[in-house]
Each structure stands twice: as C-alpha cells, then as structure tokens.
C-alpha cells in the first residue's frame, strides 16, 4: 500500500495524543494549573493535528463532514465520532484541572476510555480489510493500542509504566511482523484464485491492461526493497522501543532523558508506521502480476 505521509502522520500523532489523554484522564500525572495546561496542550495538539492531517488524504474534502453519518457500518465513521466525543469529553475535565484545581474524575475516566476506543477504531479501519492480509489480524489493534499507551505514558512522564509498555510494544511489533511474513509465505489469495484460471494450471500475467500507471498501481501496488525493509524494521525496534525503554530504566527520569526518549520513540514509530503501509500488499495487485 502507498505510504501516504498524511495517513502516517495522522495515525502516529493522533495515537500519541489520545494515548496521552488516556493517562491524563486517569490523573497521571496529578497536575493542575500551568503544568496541566502544558500536558493538555500537547495532547490536543497531537490528536487534533493528526486528525487535521488525515483531511489531506481526502480528494474531495468538502464532503468530509458527512463522514460521521455511517457509524452503523463504517469503522472510519465510528473513528470520527469517537475522536470528537473524546475531545469534547476531555475539554471540561481539562478545564477543571487547569483553571479550577479540581478533578471531575468520572469525566476523566470517560476521557481515558473514549481515547483508547478511538485508537481502537483507527486500527479497525485497517484491520477490517480482508484485501490486505498483513492488516487483517487481531495483532493490528493490539499493536496500535500498545503504541498509543506506551507513547502516552512516555509523554505523561510515567517512566516505569512507559518502559514496561515500550517493551510489550516491541514484542507485539515483532509478533505482527512474524505473522505478516507467515501470511505472505502462504497466501490465501493467489493469481490463480483471482482469475479462476488455476483450474488450467500455474498462471502468470501475460500482458497488462495498460502500459502507464494508474490509480490502482499508485495506491495499492507499492513495493519496498527487501533490504530496506530489514534495516527499517531494526531502526523501528531500536529507536521506537529498545532505546527509550533502556534510557528510562537505566537513568533517572530527568527532562533531558525524557526528551531524548520521546524523540527516539516518535522517530521509531514513524518508521514502523511507514512500514505498516509500505509492506502491506493488497490482493488486487495479483491481477497485475505483482
């Protein structure tokens, strides 16, 4: 799948923002006034910034407001509603924390639950697609939630939970790749099932329908060089999980250590999210012999 920067930015930063909101909603860290403002500002900047980035993925954004209408069937619609509900529920809780030195805790718990549900709905947009075998697995929502929680803990200044969650995330990331590689080695759909010509024998594309590229090839037939994938996987694991976890466990959590850990994690996460799209193969590319 084409790794569109808008979608990578969206899923990365909305995940971080909602992860931070989940911790803030639980009262972690227990802060008020300006300090609380800073935390909530970061949470809103990441989540709203990510959601706005997703609008750049739309070819006809003037109809974007209609995307909230089909929550009965569409995960993308549910995601939009969950995101807005989270932001609206978090606002009064944040105002109480910042301006009134109080925690309206039921609202805080609701914020935490809604924030994690939003991340789950984001993941389900991809998980639901049987057409992309790498995504069509319970590992996808597990991984999205793990990244969101570990990034949120990191941003919320919770060193020990963050370190432990980062290690879990790293393990889940390895499991996700392992199952994806296994699914690719033994695919359910092949060019033979796609064309129904397997009854004759082994089938290959003899002549494509067009010589130039088209939307289908640009959007869904992205291929990544294998050697780059291995390097990027290593970078994603080291920068995204191992290095920040190690820093938090070895050093006392000063602002500088936290900053390095956060920047390292975000860099690793961006690499992992790029791979999430770039390595995912869509079954329609079978028709193009890819």
């Amino acid at each position: 799948m084409h790794p569109a920067p808008s979608v990578i930015f969206f899923s990365t930063f909305s995940g971080l923002g909602f992860g931070l909101m989940a911790f803030l909603g639980l009262g972690l860290p227990d802060v008020t006034g300006w300090v609380a403002f800073t935390f909530w500002f970061i949470a809103y900047a990441c989540s709203v910034g990510g959601l706005l980035a997703s609008l750049f993925h739309l070819a006809n954004p003037k109809n974007a407001r209609k995307a909230l209408s089909q929550w009965r069937s569409s995960w993308l619609s549910r995601e939009g509603i969950a995101a807005i509900a989270t932001l609206l529920t978090a606002a009064p809780y944040a105002i109480g924390r910042i301006f009134f030195d109080t925690a309206w805790q039921p609202l805080g718990y609701a914020t935490a639950a809604l924030a994690l549900f939003t991340v789950f709905t984001t993941a389900m947009i991809y998980t639901q697609l049987r057409t992309v075998p790498r995504w069509n697995t319970p590992f996808t929502p597990a991984l999205f939630l793990a990244y969101s929680l570990s990034g949120g803990a990191l941003l919320a200044g919770q060193p020990i939970p963050a370190a432990l969650l980062l290690l879990v995330t790293g393990a889940l990331q390895i499991a996700y790749w392992w199952q994806g590689d296994a699914a690719e080695r033994d695919p359910e759909s092949t060019v033979e099932t796609a064309t129904g010509l397997g009854r004759i024998g082994a089938t290959r594309l003899f002549e494509p329908p067009h010589q130039g590229d088209n939307y289908l090839l640009r959007e869904m037939a992205y291929r990544i060089a294998r050697k780059h994938a291995v390097k990027l996987r290593a970078l994603a694991l080291i920068l995204g999980a191992a290095l920040p976890a190690g820093l938090l466990l070895v050093f006392s959590a000063t602002h500088l250590v936290a900053l390095v850990a956060v920047l390292s994690h975000i860099t690793g996460l961006l690499a992992a999210r790029w791979l999430f799209f770039a390595e995912a193969r869509h079954v329609q590319s079978l028709y193009y012999g890819l």
């Binding site: 799948m1 993925h57 739309l58 070819a59 006809n60 954004p61 003037k62 109809n63 974007a64 209609k66 995307a67 993308l76 947009i125 639901q128 697609l129 049987r130 057409t131 992309v132 759909s189 796609a194 088209n214 939307y215 289908l216 959007e219 869904m220 869509h282 079954v283 329609q284 590319s285 028709y287 193009y288």
Partner: peptide, 22 residues
C-alpha cells in the same frame, strides 16, 4: 455528491474495480 474521496472503498475491493478520479 456524498463522496469525500478517502479511497477506503477501493482498499476494501479485492478486484481493483474502483478508481479514484484524479
């Protein structure tokens, strides 16, 4: 009149039967 061009339907189609007009 309702399509916002997100392309998710083309992702959901196994057959490559939908194309987003550029």
């Amino acid at each position: 009149d309702d399509c916002m061009g997100c392309g998710l339907c083309a992702w959901a189609c196994p057959y490559g039967a939908r194309e987003l007009d550029a």
